[in-house]
Amino acid sequence: MRHLTLYTTLGCHLCERLEAMLSVLHDGKYRLEKVEISEDEALMARYGVRIPVLVDEAGDELDMGFEPPRLAAWLSERHCLDEAAWQRLGAQFVPQEAQDESKRSTQRPAERRYLG
């Protein structure tokens, strides 16, 4: 079982979003320890503007893990990404520019018309 730590604070909607995404994208069992930063001045100084921060057993931190592509990449680096879940969800998070480029590459170029 993997041990993860989440630095959070009461009422943090981004923290809740990260937790929800983690429950979908993490492959295998994990234990999530939540650390309330508002009760410790040192933690407030370190994480106050960065929460949610997810930390693995080795101490590697993930800021902005509420962004699904960042969380998926972080989990993948640790070999605990549920690839099937990410395939189902991932298409929603492809940047609009990439979607537009994909459409352009499959469309036939417009014919040129000249006015005489």
Rank of each mutant, 00 (worst) to 15 (best):
L6I: 09
R112C: 08
W86P: 00
A73Q: 11
Q99I: 14
C12Q: 04
L10F: 03
L14H: 01
I37R: 04
R78W: 14
R2N: 05
A73M: 06
A20C: 01
R50E: 10
D27Y: 07
Y47P: 02
T5M: 02
G11Y: 10
E83V: 12
A110M: 10
V94E: 11
L62E: 10
E61Y: 13
L81C: 05
E97Q: 15
P52S: 08
G65N: 09
G65A: 05
V35R: 14
H13V: 10
P69V: 10
L4N: 08
L81T: 11
D27C: 04
K34D: 01
I37E: 00
D100G: 00
H3N: 14
C12P: 09
V35E: 05
K34S: 09
G48R: 01
A58N: 11
V53K: 04
G48H: 03
D63F: 00
E111C: 03
P69Q: 12
A84W: 01
P109Y: 12
R2L: 03
R17I: 07
F93T: 00
L54Q: 04
Y7T: 00
M21W: 15
M64C: 02
L6V: 08
Q92Y: 05
L89F: 06
M44D: 05
P52H: 08
V35T: 09
E77G: 10
E97S: 15
R50C: 01
G59L: 07
S23A: 13
L18Y: 10
A91W: 06
H26Q: 06
L115N: 10
R113Y: 13
R88Q: 15
V53G: 04
A98S: 12
R108I: 15
T106H: 12
G65W: 04
H26W: 06
A58R: 13
L25G: 09
A84P: 06
M64L: 10
Y47A: 00
D100M: 11
L6S: 06
E83T: 06
L25K: 04
T9K: 14
R46I: 01
H3C: 05
E67Y: 12
F66I: 00
K103Q: 14
E97I: 11
H3L: 15
C15F: 03
Q96E: 15
A110S: 06
R46M: 08
G90A: 03
T5W: 03
P52T: 02
E67A: 05
D27F: 06
M21N: 08
A72K: 00
R2P: 00
D27H: 08
C12T: 04
R2M: 05
G48I: 01
Y114I: 03
R46W: 01
Y114C: 04
H79C: 03
L75D: 02
K103Y: 13
L62R: 09
M64G: 02
A84N: 03
L115G: 03
D63R: 00
E19R: 12
A73L: 09
Y47C: 04
G59M: 07
C12A: 12
R70W: 06
M1E: 13
T8N: 12
L75V: 08
T8Y: 07
E19D: 10
R104C: 07
A84D: 14
E67I: 09
G116L: 11
Y30R: 05
G90L: 06
P109F: 07
M21R: 03
P95K: 06
